[in-house]
Design a binder for these strands. Structure first.
Length: 572
DNA sequence: GCCGTTTTCGGCCCGACTGTTTTCAGTCG
């Protein structure tokens, strides 16, 4: 948390400096330092020691002092100074897709706009078109961006939602004064995006607790408000003897809930949000355990309560956190990672992993210091050296190859063939039409060197939509090529989406839960991927990195040895 | 604001794309 606060302060310094039109290189220096610190391997606790910060690239005397000031006092004087010059609403203008600090600054200074709401209105009044550097297309794009932003308001990514939920627990506990309560809603079932926090609380104390928390009554038994993080907050009152039933009801996805309701009805139990009834008489379910006993079922964990199939599935086969034996797709400071090869390998070993796939960016990803052919070869030698020092973990030398505009990979076939694995990913040309994008992805997946397709939709949760292409054709290509698909576990991505997992499973496409880590801490992101995989009821056998070291090595070799299919698209 | 066996000053990740211009600025990855 402390690291996030420090990085956030530097990012704010960068954004405000740019908005205020200060030296753009100064703003970039703040942004560079923020990126360095977000990925730095040294723990935040050591940052106070003399010289530690200054040793990091992009961090000099001035920024190091600001960071130490933030650690010591909780704020940075310079940042407060800049904040005082910019109205709070103006900062959200920079967050509008299509608006950068320059254009946002023009809108603020020339039109006096101070919020996204005012911006929307100005677009509707056609007031942007006459500004220098603006025109009808920019105005239309900005209007679209504002509406996109409005759709995101109050939504949280899972890590923020879980932090918010933890903070909420303390508030509810105080307000409940001994009454029992349980979490429900999307955060309880670990949804990638959470549009509200929810608790159910014993009805006898609900009114009082809601008042203590500053919530207002929206309907009988429902109190609403907003969390400090800006997410909607719902408190539901439930009869004490039905608290468990209500918690299961409100923490289940609708398709699952309907299927369970129908199943219970067949056995003579009427299940509603009010509780459980048999022949008109209440069946007590004060806890979730009691509910599942009454339902004559083993408990189904909240994150698995999405698909109706969860009712028939053997949940002991569904992949769980402890099942991962290793991971692919990890970055180092050879490209845009913050940790050295040695540090990443040691960290993976410390997690108990049996193997690690090293996949830095390829040459076309210039902004990420992608590896040109010479450096890729040099890195393979460095990986071999590291392997010699770490016999306890198998290292796979790979690359995250950009998928070029026409679906080509980024290196010669000879160079690609010499690698243990290739994650093929799109990092640009998002705007191709559906036809071209589909062809491009099918071609990349069909390349014999492609081991797996990285973050297949390209979405960034709450900030960028998936690019347009026909998924079915790409899935078909994955099947034909025997390639795997990534479930990118970065909580901003969680891509492929869990709703695709049942179909991938049916078609025998292996899924790799990949951290896409750019730092030592990023390795732990695999847990978000596992939670998403559990929503899609992926079994251990569906997930490539539940295989042990020997089996995964054999799988990678067999993929490499596979003859290209006799279909077009096998590369140049 | 950072950084340096080209430099303690004068550069600063680099290229594609887009919409605005009539040669380029802003944004994005």
């Amino acid at each position: 948390m402390e690291r996030e606060r420090i990085v956030g302060a530097l990012e704010a310094l960068a954004a405000l400096s740019e908005l205020l039109g200060e030296n753009p290189f100064k703003a970039r220096a703040y942004a560079n330092a923020a990126r360095t610190l977000s990925k730095a391997s040294r723990p935040v606790e050591s940052w106070g020691e003399p010289g530690v910060l200054e040793a990091l690239p992009g961090v000099g005397k001035a920024i190091a002092e600001k960071v130490r000031e933030q650690i010591a006092t909780g704020s940075v004087h310079k940042l407060e100074e800049l904040r005082a010059k910019v109205p709070p609403g103006v900062r959200e203008l920079v967050g509008v897709p299509g608006l950068g600090p320059k254009k946002a600054g023009v809108l603020w200074r020339q039109l006096g706009l101070q919020s996204a709401g005012e911006l929307e209105y100005a677009c509707l009044e056609n007031r942007l078109v006459s500004l220098p550097g603006f025109g009808p297309k920019t105005q239309a794009k900005v209007l679209e961006g504002v509406r996109l932003l409005a759709g995101r308001r109050g939504k949280l990514l899972l890590p923020s939602a879980l932090a918010a939920q933890a903070a909420l627990a303390a508030r509810v506990e105080r307000a409940a004064r001994g009454a029992r309560w349980l979490f429900a809603g999307e955060a309880a079932r670990l949804c990638p995006v959470v549009s509200g926090l929810e608790v159910v609380l014993e009805a006898g104390r609900a009114e009082e607790a809601a008042a203590a928390m500053g919530l207002s009554r929206a309907a009988p038994g429902l109190f609403v408000g907003e969390s400090p993080e800006g997410a909607p907050l719902r408190l539901r009152a439930a009869a004490a003897e039905g608290l468990g039933s209500a918690a299961v009801w409100f923490a289940s996805g609708e398709p699952f809930r309907e299927a369970l309701r129908a199943e219970l009805a067949r056995s003579g139990l009427a299940w509603t949000e009010e509780g459980l009834l048999r022949e008109g008489r209440a069946v007590p379910a004060p806890s979730e355990e009691a509910f599942w006993r009454a339902a004559a079922r083993s408990p189904i964990p909240p994150e698995c309560r999405e698909l109706p199939e969860a009712l028939e599935a053997d949940l002991s086969e569904v992949v769980a956190e402890g099942d991962l034996r290793g991971a692919f797709h990890v970055h180092t400071d050879w490209s845009d990672g913050g940790a050295t090869l040695e540090e990443m390998v040691a960290a993976a070993e410390a997690l108990g992993w049996e193997y690690l796939g090293l996949c830095d960016h390829s040459a076309s990803a210039v902004y990420a210091h992608g590896l040109d052919p010479e450096r890729l070869v040099a890195q393979r030698a460095a990986i071999a050296d590291t392997q010699a020092r770490h016999p306890g973990i198998a290292l796979f030398a790979g690359v995250e190859s950009d998928i070029l505009g026409g679906g080509e990979l980024d290196y010669s076939d000879e160079l690609l063939a010499a690698l243990d694995l290739v994650v093929a990913s799109v990092h640009g040309r998002f705007g191709l039409d559906e036809e071209a994008q589909t062809t491009r992805l099918v071609r990349a997946v069909s390349h014999p060197a492609t081991t797996m397709l990285g973050h297949p939709t390209g979405r960034l949760l709450l900030s960028r939509e998936p690019y347009a292409y026909r998924w079915e054709e790409v899935e078909e290509a994955l099947v034909s090529a025997g390639a795997a698909v990534e479930l990118n576990a970065n909580p901003h991505r969680l891509d492929v989406d869990w709703t695709r997992l049942p179909s991938l499973r049916r078609r025998g496409v292996r899924v790799a839960v990949n951290p896409d880590a750019h730092s030592v801490a990023g390795l732990a992101d695999v847990r978000y991927g596992i939670w998403a995989a559990r929503k899609g009821l992926a079994r251990r056998g569906d997930i490539l990195n539940t295989l042990d070291r020997e089996a995964v090595g054999a799988w990678l070799r067999s993929k490499k040895a596979r003859r290209p299919q006799s279909r077009d698209g096998g590369g140049e």
